[in-house]
Design a protein around this nucleic acid. Sequence first.
RNA 1: GGUUCGGUGGCCGAGUGGCUAGGCAGAGGUCUGCAAAACCUUUUACAGCGGUUCGAAUCCGCUCCGAACCUCCA
Length: 498
Amino acid sequence: MSELKIYNSYTRQKEVFKPITPGHVGMYVCGPTVSGESHLGHARPYITFDVIYRYLTHLGYKVRYVRNITDAGHFEEEGREAEDKISKKAVLEKLEPMELVQKYTNLFHWAMDQFNNIRPSIEPTATGHIVEQIEMIKKIIDEGYAYVVNGSVYFDVKKYAASHDYGKLSGRVMDELLETTRQLEGQDEKRDKADFALWKNAAPEHIMRWQSPWGVGFPGWHIECSAMSTKYLGPQFDIHGGGMDLQFPHHESEIAQSTICNHTAPVRYWIHNNMITINGRKMGKSYNNVIKLTEMFSGNHPLLDKAYSPMTIRFFILQTHYRSTLDFSNEALKAAEKGLKRLWEAYETLQKLLPEGTGEKPGDPQLDEKVKKLLLEMDEFMNDDFNTAKVLANMFELVPIINSVKDKHIPASALSQPTWDLFRRYFKLYLEDILGLKSEAQQEDGKLEGVIRLLIDIRKEAKARKDYATSDKIRQQLQELGILLKDEKDGSVTYTFA
RNA sequence: GGUUCGGUGGCCGAGUGGCUAGGCAGAGGUCUGCAAAACCUUUUACAGCGGUUCGAAUCCGCUCCGAACCUCCA
């Protein structure tokens, strides 16, 4: 089997993955700011990194997956009124800040569960790590790379850039940065426009505030991730993930802070997922084109033709490589929904097939080879920078084979027993364990099952005496209730819920 | 304006030099009392113009178009 290769945003190339500690992987992913409801755009990184987490685990690594909750609000707009995003909204909604934080954290967790994302190993909050952040800032000041002004602390980017590669991750050069950084009011405190805040003095009306050596205030945006990743993963860890939009300034600043504080580059492999776009535009608050996850699941949004289930969205996202933009449209979502249904039904068929007459030797060596190749290739695809799109394409190529065996167009003995075993094992491994898809069929209650079976029996009797009016009526009315009957080749009848 | 990344058939999307991606939709067929499903076959591509090469969607140049970042953002 080939080695796992990961596209490292820092070096802009695919690199063979080698963990720092053999057998173990430390992975940090920037989590949500819980000042509002999660939207479709948030689904992308957490599903992407969930699959990465699952795959690394499958490869045998013991993974510590840390994903933070940003509950200490950043500046609404740096330089202007240093308002805390979370505390501002809390006033509007007449809620305690932490009440708001809890509400949206709960909602976020609920959405992640809907997507079948495995919960991270550690989910630290920014407010729970103020002490660590203050300690880190102190160290940076001691190192001479930060300065205090009026109760605020700023990172000295110019000084850092003189001896370090500030801008490498985001592909920026220092001179341009100085010129192109937008001129904002009240920036006088900073020595340089490119400097960023580590700690911000809190105005009296600012609700979220903590005592620090520099006065009462709150932490800057970037320091929380550095403090928490250092605490739980060490000064240097394997993987740091997040959306591409976080590359600058967030991740660039994280690198600078951690490097000064810990005297080592914090991250070995930077992984960035691309954005979900809507009409070619990134989904985001500033564009006013946000579809919240609750709206996706309910269909209750002007842009949505219908509701889309969490698994449809998961599948939709995994059909694209994580570094490509993914364009939202009803047409694309509906296509994903149908495709997933077909794939999932074939998967269930495969698990139920009990191939008879298969032996060690395949009846159709060519087909047997083809199946094996398509299955084993999936490992190669995942190893090539987590190419879930190609994995799914191979699975779809195998669907007609499953269905043909079911319909007896192809004898089960065409494939050898070992190939059948591999087939079943890989479909389960990839669909459920690695891609994290699951059945969305409602939990059937035994009574409903019994009633449907009864109707199927009555219909069968009606058909036997060619009373098609009755048999069609049963099929038609069940369909209106969302229960689809299928007459199988062998005369049996199966049903699915629409 | 600067930096970076893209433009693939009706729609979504793989694909970094030669080998059918795949899904959805469309067309024809098989099966079926009919239907659905399934299976088989099948139409429509690589923004434009040059160049490199035996050979380019894939490399290089130019042009046009779009996006992300430079401000909170997944």
